[in-house]
Design a binder for these strands. Structure first.
Lengths: 195, 195
DNA sequence: CGAGCTAACATACCAGTGGTATGTAAAAAC
DNA sequence: GTTTTTACATACCACTGGTATGTTAGCTCG
């Protein structure tokens, strides 16, 4: 009823995604679709016109956050390139990633719940894990420079990604003694000693 | 009705937990309480007599798995103590942990979904994270030996825990090039170079 | 231009869910 | 032997994700 008669598909879709992001960020996946469509100013009919089901909606919110983070992280890394220290760019990327972990929506949707919500079906199956791609490319860069053995790249990637993930969660929980600087310091020596 | 007239509270409780573990492992948190109570051979009345709500039930299943893993891991570590190499025990514990990550119920309930299900309320708040305690005590052991600086213990703990977590997930997803051995090898040099 | 098709929503409704209120019988307490 | 408590079962409810079915605006094309 309050909806204007002008049809504007992309705006509607964006409104749904935005409302969903906020609700998912504050209430988690349990946030009801009713509340989301109310926030977006539309009805469930519209929602199910654009998204197959609740998981699909969540997947898109999750993917958007993830890709935004990846882009920003890579941008930070490229901006801090140094000709005589190949680690500097990567460490700048790590620091930028840790900044993302302070965002409440990123914390809850990506760090905390995402894996469980999309679990098995989407997350497990394949390369939807954008974060992993970023880390892999960073490690690949070190391999290219001859700083890391080629056959260790995969293993070291998952370890570095896991370390970053754990560090981000620790920051989110603000565990004693864990700060952005202390983590970056630890990652610095950790990365430099990898071979 | 099929329930015998003899009251046996602990058995009933255990039956519920066992049924819940299996359902949660195969269907995730979405597994309906109806199916769980059917498996356990009781009714919802009994379930809600023992557990405040679905989350509380999940929390207990999750905690049990987590503590079993922690106990087993520490046992493995203590069994592999070596007087001239303090790292050996820890690495044995890591290997044992990675073995746990091959268990489907542990994968789904602890690695994938647990964080999201209990998120914020239980997991975030504090020391329900048994895994972290284990890692902290291992790092504490190295601090005691003078191998790691005291003020770095917290940060290194979350990094090591994250690395293990990520490695376990990678094994669960069987990502190319990642094996138990390759991870243990990487952890070996990583731990030994920490200071 | 106007008839028909389709995209973009709205409305009404449903099965199933977690959770609650209430009942009841056996054991334990006194 | 009465009362209280424990250990369940039964009946029920509000609400949820999802579906089936409208309805209307805009575009296509003769």
């Amino acid at each position: 009823m309050p909806r204007s008669r002008t049809r504007n598909a992309p705006e509607t879709r964006a409104a749904i995604l935005e409302a969903a992001r906020q609700r998912f960020a504050s209430e988690g996946f349990d946030a009801s679709l009713s509340s989301i469509v109310a926030d977006a100013g539309i009805t469930k009919g519209a929602l199910f016109h654009y998204f197959e089901n609740k998981q699909a909606l969540y997947l898109e919110v999750w993917t958007n956050l993830q890709t935004d983070m990846a882009r920003d992280t890579q941008k930070a890394a490229l901006a801090n390139r140094s000709p005589d220290d190949p680690y500097q760019a990567i460490l700048a990327g790590c620091r930028r990633y840790l900044e993302w972990t302070t965002r409440p929506d990123f914390q809850r949707i990506v760090l905390i719940e995402g894996r469980g919500v999309l679990g098995m079906t989407e997350w497990m199956s394949n390369e939807r894990d954008v974060g992993r791609e970023v880390v892999r490319s960073a490690i690949g860069y070190l391999v290219q420079r001859g700083l890391i053995a080629d056959d260790r790249a995969s293993t070291l990637s998952v370890i570095v990604q896991g370390a970053l993930h754990g560090a981000g969660l620790a920051l989110a929980r603000n565990i004693d003694g864990v700060t952005v600087d202390s983590i970056c310091c630890a990652l610095d020596s950790m990365l430099r000693q990898m071979k």
